[in-house]
Design a protein around this nucleic acid. Structure first.
Length: 277
DNA sequence: TTCCAGGCGTATC
DNA sequence: GATACGCATGGA
């Protein structure tokens, strides 16, 4: 990771990173792509810190209006810049499928998102599609002026949240907010608990089953061994790994899952899949 | 119109 | 414990 200051901006030089791959691969839902005349930017936020970022050329990124303290204190961690994804990709490219998946979207990095936001996001994601998930979260943030904390949400009723058009998921969001507020579930406890206990505690929330719990662990708590299995990953497993992921992915199954998910959903993997059915 | 989307709760066996 | 079904919403 290398960076320089450029006026009010930070210029970041980073390998194995692409904004399209990382911010639009279904792990985070608050980043909005704006395609201007001569430049493309992504706007988003971590908690209350907003960011506009552009990829000026391959491996060069401009973080607009960002001071060094915010860059080092927030974005370096959020974009997981201390992790060598080149090394991870080499390690998990131990067969043709993994190699292709890693090459297809080589700019994916696992974001270190806020745990509460990630939990809510993947509660909303169930039996839903990515454009709608983004819409619901966008309306949520717009209404509350940023992502609401669990205290704010705990005071709501399902009817209050009708404007979200989240359907049956609204009551799940409220249950999560209430259980965090009254201490039934503690994300701090979940973060430090062994993964099996962490899963169990998350699943105390109504609307959080195995898949959502796994996503909360992977995307909100950087548990790289968590392996969410949704409809797309089911297809991956049927098609390529009926007896499980290769051994080389041990410990970073969650990261491997990101490359595979994006590969089968939007890449040649999906064409093969369409051809089959 | 019917099917599907980064699933889960519930009923039933 | 496994399996079947309903669930809100909106795009294809």
């Amino acid at each position: 990771m290398r960076y320089t200051k450029d006026g009010h901006d930070i210029l970041l030089y980073q390998e194995d990173f692409s904004l399209d791959d990382t911010l639009d691969c279904g792990q985070a839902f608050r980043w909005q792509k704006d395609s201007g005349k001569d430049k493309v930017t992504y706007s988003g936020a971590y908690l209350n810190t907003k960011l506009v970022i552009a990829e000026e050329e391959k491996g060069v990124f401009r973080l607009y209006d960002t001071d060094e303290e915010t860059f080092l204190g927030v974005w370096k961690d959020y974009f997981d810049l201390d992790t060598d994804y080149g090394e991870i990709k080499r390690r998990i490219s131990c067969d043709e499928t993994m190699k292709k998946a890693c090459e297809y979207a080589g700019g994916i990095r696992l974001l270190r998102q806020d745990s509460w936001e990630a939990l809510c996001s993947f509660i909303i994601s169930q039996n839903n599609n990515i454009p709608r998930i983004k819409g619901i979260i966008s309306r949520l943030c717009e209404h509350f002026g940023g992502f609401p904390d669990h205290g704010e949400l705990a005071r709501m009723t399902a009817d209050d949240l009708a404007f979200l058009r989240a359907g049956f998921r609204a009551k799940y969001l409220i249950d999560a907010a209430k259980k965090l507020s009254d201490g039934t579930v503690s994300l701090e406890r979940v973060k430090s608990a062994p993964v099996e206990e962490a899963r169990k505690e998350l699943m105390l929330i109504s609307g959080v089953g195995p898949k959502v719990a796994e996503c909360a662990l992977l995307y909100g708590m950087y548990r790289t061994q968590a392996f969410p299995i949704d409809v797309w990953i089911k297809r991956v497993m049927q098609q390529w790994y009926p007896s499980g992921l290769p051994q080389c992915c041990e410990g970073v199954q969650g990261i491997a899952q990101q490359y595979l998910f994006h590969y089968i959903r939007t890449g040649t993997g999906s064409e093969k899949n369409d051809g089959q059915k």
